[in-house]
């Protein structure tokens, strides 16, 4: 496969996943904002969302304050923000278009229909009472794209690079989401008041795992268990462990298809996965969730760079 093709497929996977993650993050922030009379100030919420989306630097270069309206606009349709929902889908479509023949018809249509709809997005779609419906639609478009890929793609390198992009992006997103709320997960904050509770719920909602938590633990929300679910539990499809298991597995399959040569990205993916597979939540809590995640986010970036160096830039 051409390196350029691999690169387009990899970023196709990343951008579609990113759009849905931003949508989920925005929904949670707006929910907390609506409930801020009950649960206290939500200003940090907007700043946190920008940090989690990796958009804080770009945003503050243009704005002084993170108002709900400004952040929402920036994360949905501001053309200067390449991690915003509309630009993500545009970039995904461009990547897809460059490798049309590597995509199935179903994938292409899912992508293209989304783009067509987004081009005629009404101006009032960002208003508070319309936004949730729009963000639900965004999530459903990524679900459709992922479903089309899973159901219709040949399991060859094209599939592997799309999937690798999706999983790496998902891992990065989970780590960042958890990290911006790490202060709510400290044991000293574990008093279980209504405010803590709302934030714990928000962490879980942002990875659509509120009910999953109940099914796994059958108990009240506890910061330690929330962290364990999102970092170490293999059953949760958005946990760091589940994502890195898929990343490692996919990289292995790519290596096997390339004469068995393993590169730095394989070593790094294997190390990250092993660390998550054998990690213990108590040790992570003791070390500090923030410290642990900061390190992990850096390694994830490094892994992305190594995948690029190994396969994507020829």
């Amino acid at each position: 496969m051409l390196s350029r093709t691999a690169e387009n497929l990899f970023w196709l996977g990343r951008y579609t996943e990113r759009a849905a993650n931003v949508a989920r993050g925005l929904q949670v922030a707006h929910r907390l904002h609506s409930l801020s009379r009950t649960f206290g100030g939500a200003e940090d919420e907007w700043r946190g969302l920008l940090v989690a989306s990796g958009c804080d630097a770009g945003f503050y270069a243009q704005h002084d304050n993170a108002s709900p309206e400004a952040v929402t606009h920036y994360l949905v349709r501001d053309p200067s923000n390449l991690s915003g929902i509309v630009p993500c889908f545009e970039a995904a479509r461009q990547n897809g278009r460059a490798v049309r023949t590597a995509l199935t018809v179903e994938m292409w249509e899912a992508l293209n229909d989304t783009w067509i709809e987004l081009r005629r997005l009404p101006p009032d779609v960002l208003e508070a009472d319309r936004l949730t419906t729009f963000l639900d639609w965004v999530k459903s478009r990524t679900l459709l794209f992922n479903g089309a890929a899973i159901d219709t793609m040949l399991r060859d390198d094209a599939w592997r690079f799309v999937h690798l992009g999706t999983m790496l992006e998902r891992a990065d997103n989970t780590a960042r989401l958890l990290d911006v709320r790490h202060q709510w997960l400290q044991p000293r904050n574990g008093t279980g008041g209504a405010v803590e509770y709302a934030h714990w719920q928000a962490v879980l909602r942002s990875v659509s795992a509120l009910r999953a938590y109940q099914w796994v633990y059958h108990s009240r929300l506890q910061p330690r268990l929330i962290a364990e679910l999102m970092i170490l539990r293999p059953e949760l499809p958005r946990s760091l462990r589940a994502c890195f298991a898929r990343v490692e597995q996919t990289l292995e399959a790519i290596a096997n298809n390339h004469g068995g040569t393993r590169l730095e990205c394989h070593r790094l993916a294997g190390e990250l996965h092993a660390q998550l597979r054998y990690g213990r939540i108590d040790a992570i809590m003791e070390q500090g969730v923030h410290e642990y995640l900061t390190l992990l986010i850096d390694r994830t970036i490094e892994l992305g760079t190594q995948i690029g160096a190994g396969y994507l830039s020829g």
């Binding site: 904002h33 009379r37 009950t38 009472d129």
Partner: peptide, 8 residues
């Protein structure tokens, strides 16, 4: 949502 933002 805006109605909630105005009430506790």
């Amino acid at each position: 949502p805006e109605l909630f933002a105005r009430h506790n």
